[in-house]
Nucleic acid binder design. Structure first.
Length: 314
DNA sequence: TGCAGTGTTGCTTC
DNA sequence: CGAAGCAACACTGC
C-alpha cells in the first residue's frame, strides 16, 4: 500500500521521535519478517544500540543505529509503523474489546495493544502487531502487518546501497538532480512498455505505485496504456512535472489513507480526498471543460483508473 | 457461501 | 531476454 509519500510521512514522524533513543528489547510472533538473518541474531545485534537517524530510500524505511548498522523496513502491502506506549494483554481480551467472541485456541497468547485507551482497538492495524521494539523512554515502535508481507533486515550502513534490498532500485523521483532529461532516459529503458507499468517499475524509477501513477497520468493527460516510445517530448515533460507535483502533494497531505495507511500516531492522511482518478470509477472527469468519465481497466495485472476522454492514447 | 480483488515485490514460467 | 503469472497472507465486498 504505502508508496513514496506514505513512507516519507512515516519517516518524517519517526525522525522527530526516535533519534537518541536506545533499543532495549525486541519481540515478535512472526520471526519470518526478518530476512537474511535469524530473528535471534537480529535481536542480539540491535539491543543496546542507539538510534541516530531515520531515512527513506524508495519505499524502504532506514533506521540508522550505533555500531554502523541500519535497520531496513519495507511495509509492503499492509505494514504500519506505530509509535507510542503499548501493553501486552491476553488475546481473548483484545477480541472481546472489538466485539468478536469466536473460539480460538490462541486466546491465551499475549497481544500488544496501545496503552492509551482512547486509541481505538478496532482500528485494523491494532490487531496485527507482529513486531515490537521497546525503547529507552518506555515507549514502543510497533510494526503491524495484517498480511505478513513486510520485511525487516539489518545491514552495515556502509554496505546498504549495495545490498540486495536497495542495489537494483532506480533513482529517487523527488531529488533535484532527477531532471527531465534523466526521467526521459529512464523511461526509455522500456520503450515498448506501457507507461503506467513503467512508472511503477522500481528499477526504472523508485517509489511510485498504483495510486500515484494513476494520478500523475490523469494530470498529464496520458492514457496509461500508451507505449513509452510513442509519447512526445512535451508529453514526457508534462508527466515529469505531474510526477513531482503529485508526489509532493501526497507528502503535504500526510499520505493516502483510502485504504488502511496510518501515520506513526495512527492518524489518517488526507490525499485520498484529492484523487482525480484512483478509485473514482464512474465519476465525471474533474478536469475543467472535460466531459469524460473515469473508467477502470486491468493493465499489467493492476487496476488502472483514467479519464475516457482527455487521457489520450498516443 | 464463495470467490475475486486489494496498496508490493520477487520468483518462476513461458 | 522480457513479459506474464503467481505466491507470500488475510481480510473485504460483491
Amino acid at each position: 500500500m504505502p508508496e513514496l509519500p506514505e513512507v516519507q510521512t512515516t519517516v518524517n514522524g519517526l525522525q522527530k521521535v526516535l533519534p537518541n533513543l536506545k533499543i532495549k528489547d525486541v519481540w515478535t510472533d512472526w520471526p519470518k519478517t526478518v530476512k537474511g538473518n535469524s530473528f535471534q541474531k537480529f535481536k542480539h545485534e540491535i539491543i543496546g544500540e542507539k538510534i541516530s537517524a531515520v531515512k527513506r530510500r524508495a519505499k524502504n524505511i532506514l533506521i540508522n543505529i550505533s555500531g554502523g548498522k541500519t535497520i531496513l523496513i519495507h511495509m509492503k502491502m499492509t505494514g504500519h509503523l506505530l509509535y507510542g506506549k503499548y501493553n501486552q494483554i491476553p488475546y481473548s481480551n483484545v477480541l472481546e474489546n472489538i466485539g468478536i467472541r469466536k473460539n480460538s485456541k490462541k486466546t491465551n497468547n499475549l497481544r500488544w495493544v496501545p496503552a492509551d485507551k482512547k486509541s481505538p482497538l478496532n482500528d485494523p492495524f491494532n490487531r496485527f502487531i507482529h513486531f515490537v521494539f521497546t525503547l529507552s523512554n518506555g515507549k514502543h515502535l510497533a510494526f503491524s502487518d495484517m498480511r505478513k508481507f513486510g520485511k525487516l533486515a539489518l545491514e552495515k550502513t556502509s554496505a546498504l546501497p549495495h545490498s540486495p534490498h536497495l542495489s537494483h532500485l532506480g533513482p529517487e523521483p523527488l531529488e533535484k538532480k532527477f531532471t527531465l532529461k534523466k526521467f526521459s532516459e529512464r523511461l526509455l529503458k522500456k520503450p515498448n512498455g506501457k507507461i503506467k507499468t513503467v512508472l511503477m517499475d522500481q528499477v526504472i524509477i523508485s517509489g511510485i505505485g498504483n495510486i500515484y501513477s494513476d494520478e500523475m497520468l490523469f494530470l498529464a493527460g496520458i492514457h496509461p496504456e500508451t507505449k513509452v516510445s510513442k509519447i512526445k517530448i512535451n508529453g514526457i515533460a508534462k508527466l515529469f512535472s505531474a510526477m513531482k507535483k503529485v508526489l509532493k502533494k501526497g507528502i503535504d497531505f500526510g499520505g493516502d489513507s483510502m485504504s488502511d495507511y496510518r501515520n506513526i500516531n495512527g492518524e489518517r492522511g488526507k490525499f485520498q480526498e484529492k484523487h482525480n482518478a484512483y478509485q473514482k470509477t464512474g465519476s465525471r472527469c474533474a478536469k475543467r471543460g472535460c466531459f469524460g468519465v473515469i473508467i477502470k481497466k486491468k493493465i499489467g495485472g493492476r487496476s488502472a483508473h483514467f479519464c475516457s476522454i482527455h487521457q489520450k492514447l498516443y
